[in-house]
Write a protein that binds this DNA or RNA. Structure first.
Lengths: 192, 192
DNA sequence: ATTATAAACTAACACTTGTTTGTTTCAAAA
DNA sequence: TTTTGAAACAAACAAGTGTTAGTTTATAAT
């Protein structure tokens, strides 16, 4: 384990991710967060502007990672199935690498304040559109069975996004096993 | 619209479902809830013992409905596919009939206080076991492809449980269309 | 008309919320 | 050795928390 000594800022961030995830953003107080870090509440404000600032950093960092992962999906790949599998793997990989933070991303984003909230929603829509495009083109091409694209995209995201919750149950599964099994199930469902 | 005049108690309950769902249990105050109902905060306590009491009623009512729906799945049905489809339809039907409340059920249950929290978890596990059993037997029988049962069950529940969130997006889909499309996708993925 | 009951109210309690102010501590730079 | 700056602190603020006490209002039963 290459666990470098964390800066106070990193420590606050990491603890916030854990607590926001475990107990919910609204239910976690600054004093509780500070105590877990080992400092007093006002000291947090030397590193973050506000409680919301913390949430913002966590959420947008994950958003960033999702986009970067999606950019690595080969644009020239002809097979919709292969393209979809790559997108699914990338998506799950981001979650697996950021279990606490992605939990916050999925469950606590609504506590973001404007204008961040609007920006967040826009980013998310933009990202989801990438998946919908792959599915839509796959259907037109005949790789995928014709179905309600929006509903299918929604369902696939629901399945993928829940994986952050998988590690709590103590399942001893590798990231690849999880990604493959889920991708297999969903892709077989999609295929023509 | 057969909207009968609601009692104050029903009004509180319905408003709580809406607010807890929209803004989260911890973020909704009793004064805000009361204001939306059109009364003062202390008046709520003439109908409910506590804030948690409200959450408890909402969550356990939905739990009840899930169980009742699952009891209507034909035990003598031989085909695992047909049995699974019936279970999926029943599950989605409960969500569709209780969009706000099921949202609370899925997202806010962790704010239940002991011993209700433990009871809730137990019920949920018991219910999920019913689905896992169908899937497991379906695999042994050869109707379903052999896969990691726990992971597959988890994935299917993730897809089903997210449907409460589908109605926000303004999709003009009937409950049956949604249930059929999702069941088709997942069952095709399961099948051998 | 009187009593009983449910359900509303105002006022307040004890405590917690996120955050600000002003001060102190301490290590690195000059 | 002095200065500087970051980062910690205690104390406090205004607002909000769930809830209780005590009282009033209104409706239904005797």
């Amino acid at each position: 384990m290459a666990t470098a000594t964390l800066t106070t800022r990193q420590n606050i961030r990491q603890t916030a991710q854990k607590l926001f995830r475990e107990r919910g953003y609204a239910a976690v107080g600054m004093r509780e967060l500070a105590k877990e870090v080992g400092i007093e509440a006002p000291s947090i404000y030397n590193h973050y502007k506000s409680k919301d600032d913390l949430l913002r950093e966590i959420c947008f960092d994950i958003a960033d990672q999702f986009f970067k992962a999606s950019e690595e999906v080969d644009v020239n790949e002809k097979s919709a199935t292969k393209k979809m599998r790559a997108a699914i793997k990338g998506h799950i990989s981001v979650i697996a690498k950021n279990i606490e933070a992605s939990g916050v991303f999925f469950q606590e984003w609504m506590f973001l304040e404007e204008p961040d909230l609007a920006k967040f929603k826009k980013l998310r829509q933009e990202y989801e559109l990438k998946f919908r495009d792959i599915i839509e083109k796959g259907m037109k091409k005949g790789d995928f069975k014709p179905m309600n694209v929006k509903l299918v995209t929604f369902t696939i995201f629901s399945a993928l996004n829940a994986t952050y919750d998988l590690y709590r149950t103590g399942e001893k599964l590798s990231q690849d096993e999880i990604a493959d099994e889920i991708a297999n199930l969903l892709l077989k469902g999609l295929k023509n």
